[in-house]
Computed example of a mutant assay.
Amino acid sequence: MGMMKEFKEFAVKGNVIDLAVGVIIGGAFGKIVDSVVGDLIMPIVGLVFGKIDFSSWFIVLGTPPAGTAMNLADLKKAGVPVLAYGNFITVAVNFIILAFIIFMMVKQINRLKRTEEAAPAAPAPTPEDIVLLREIRDSLKK
C-alpha cells in the first residue's frame, strides 16, 4: 500500500506532468525539425556540395544476394549489413538545428526573466538572542 501511495505522489507532482507535456511536444517538434532538415535544408546543402543526396551515402558491409539493387532501402530490406553514414549526417544536422532552436528559446526566456524586476527581499528577522542582547544593552544605558 505504501508503494502505491508513493507512486501516486510521484505521478501527480507538477514536475512529472511538465515532463510528460515536454516529451509529447518534443516528439511533435522533432517531426517538424525532421521535415525542415530533410525537405528544406538538406536539399540546399546537397546543391552546394554538387546535388548530393546524403541518404545515398552508405558502405555495404556484407555480400548482397544476387539481383539486389544497390540502393540503401533494398539492401536493408535484403538484410545486408550497411553502414549508412549519410543518414548519420542528416541526423547530425537535424540535432544541430534542434539544439540551436532550443538555445535560442532558452536565451529568449532568460532575457524575459531578467527584464522582470524582482521585488526586494524582506529583511531576515532578527534572531532572538540579538534582540535580547540589544534589550540588555539599552537597559544598561539608562
Rank of each mutant, 00 (worst) to 15 (best):
F103T: 06
L132Q: 15
G86V: 06
V36K: 09
A124W: 05
G50K: 12
I96P: 00
A118P: 05
L40Q: 11
M70P: 02
I25Q: 08
T115A: 09
K51Q: 06
A20N: 08
V60N: 01
A122V: 09
M1D: 10
G62H: 02
V82F: 01
F88V: 14
E128W: 11
V37L: 00
I89H: 00
G50L: 13
E135P: 01
L72R: 15
A28L: 12
D129A: 07
A20R: 06
G79R: 02
L132P: 06
L98F: 10
D18V: 12
M3L: 11
V23W: 04
G2L: 13
V45L: 15
G86L: 04
I97D: 01
D34L: 12
V82T: 07
V16Y: 06
I24E: 04
G22W: 07
G38D: 15
D18P: 01
S56R: 15
P120K: 10
V33A: 01
V33P: 00
F7S: 08
P81M: 03
A78L: 04
I32A: 05
P43D: 11
R134E: 04
F88K: 12
V16T: 10
V37A: 02
D39A: 15
I17N: 06
V23T: 03
K107C: 06
N87E: 12
F29G: 05
V36I: 15
V21P: 00
P65V: 00
I44T: 14
V36N: 07
V48D: 03
F95E: 13
E6V: 06
V131K: 10
A124G: 03
F29M: 10
A124H: 03
E117K: 15
M1T: 11
N110M: 04
G27P: 00
N87I: 13
G46L: 04
S35Q: 09
F100V: 10
V80L: 01
P64I: 12
V80H: 00
V12E: 11
V82D: 00
I24P: 01
G26P: 01
A11Y: 04
K113S: 03
L140I: 09
A20S: 11
A78Q: 04
G79K: 03
V21I: 01
K51C: 03
V131P: 04
D53K: 15
I41M: 00
E128G: 09
R111V: 05
G2T: 12
